[in-house]
Computed example of a mutant assay.
Amino acid sequence: MHIKEAQSERHVLAITVDNEAGILAKIAGLFTARGYNIDSLTVADIAEDHATSRITIVTNGPPAVIDQIQAQLERLVPVHKVIDLTEEGPHVERELALIKVKGTGDNRIEALRLAEIFRAQVVDVTTSSFIFELTGAPDKIDNFIALMRELGLVEVGRTGVAGMMRGAEGA
């Protein structure tokens, strides 16, 4: 294992920005220029007047690099606030996935049984396939997808992580 890999940590960044053209490209460019991957990215309008948006990014890197990225994000003019949810304390993360699985016979029965255990909803069904909708922590979704691979996984669509600090305080 490389030293860099041993120090790499997963971080969830919540970024409040002005809702303007090009801001997402600027933020993604910060990561690209430094050779760091964005594992998940979601964007949502958060103001009644549509003036601000929240960008949630999941990335991996050594703490010093995450601190550097956070500082550089804070210097961008349309950025209001950057919060590292991972560093701030207890937070909730959720993701939505659509998972298409083909199956007949025993595999079909097993896919439905596992979907019930994971509380996945069947949102489409044919005689040879299902589309499941699953909401939960990213690890839960990863585990469900791994099990479906063995049963006939066809396709996966994921929304990306949405995260929020626990408690009454806002991020």
Score class of each variant (00 low, 15 high):
Thr104Leu: 12
Leu98Asp: 03
His80Ile: 11
Asp139Asn: 12
Ala111Arg: 05
Ala97Met: 11
Ala97Pro: 07
Thr86Val: 08
Leu96Met: 10
Ala111Lys: 05
Arg119Asn: 14
Arg113Asp: 01
Ser129His: 13
Gly89Arg: 09
Ala97Cys: 12
Ile141Asp: 08
Lys140Asp: 09
Gln121Asn: 11
Thr127Gln: 07
Asp124Lys: 09
Phe144Cys: 02
Leu98Cys: 05
Asn107Asp: 03
Thr135Gln: 04
Val92Met: 13
Leu85Phe: 10
Asp106Gln: 10
Pro138Ile: 15
Val79Met: 04
Val92Asn: 06
Arg113Lys: 09
Thr86Ile: 01
Asn107Ala: 03
Thr86Met: 01
Arg119Tyr: 07
Phe130Ser: 15
Glu110Asn: 01
Leu98Pro: 03
Ser128Leu: 13
Asp124Ala: 07
His80Glu: 10
Leu114Met: 01
Gly136Lys: 07
His91Val: 10
Ser129Cys: 08
Pro138Tyr: 11
Asn107Pro: 00
Phe118Leu: 03
Ile145Glu: 09
Glu110Gln: 05
Lys81Asn: 15
Ala137His: 15
Ala137Lys: 14
Asn107Leu: 00
Ala111Gly: 06
Ser128Trp: 02
Lys140His: 12
Thr104Gly: 06
Ala115Trp: 06
Glu95Ser: 14
Glu88Phe: 03
Asp139Pro: 09
Lys81Phe: 12
Lys102Leu: 11
Phe118Asn: 07
Val122Thr: 15
Val79Leu: 08
Asp124Met: 06
Leu134Ala: 02
Leu134Glu: 03
Ile109Tyr: 02
Lys140Phe: 02
Gly89Thr: 12
Gly103Leu: 04
Glu110Thr: 08
Phe118His: 06
Val101Lys: 14
Glu87Met: 00
Ser129Ala: 15
Leu112Gln: 08
Ile117Tyr: 07
Ile109Arg: 08
Phe130Pro: 13
Phe132Glu: 15
Glu133Arg: 13
Thr127Asp: 15
Ala115Glu: 10
Leu134Lys: 05
Leu85Thr: 12
Asp124Tyr: 04
Ile141Phe: 04
Glu87Ser: 08
Arg113Cys: 05
Gly136Thr: 11
His91Lys: 10
Leu114Glu: 00
Ala97Ser: 12
Thr127Ile: 08
Ala111Thr: 00
Glu87Tyr: 01
Thr104Pro: 00
Val92Trp: 08
Val125Met: 14
Asn143Gln: 13
Ser129Thr: 14
Phe130Cys: 15
Phe132Thr: 09
Val92His: 09
Phe132Met: 09
Gly136Ile: 13
Ala115Asp: 06
Ile145Val: 15
Ala115Phe: 10
Glu88Pro: 00
Asp142His: 10
Asp142Glu: 07
Asp124Cys: 14
Arg108His: 02
Gly89Leu: 13
Leu114Ile: 03
Lys100Val: 15
Glu110Met: 04
Glu133Cys: 02
Leu85His: 12
Leu96Glu: 00
Thr126Asp: 10
Lys100His: 14
Leu112Pro: 08
Asp139Gly: 15
Ala111Leu: 06
His91Leu: 12
Arg108Ala: 07
Val125Leu: 14
Thr86Asn: 02
Glu88Ala: 14
Lys102Thr: 12
Ile99Pro: 05
Leu96Asp: 00
Asn143Ser: 13
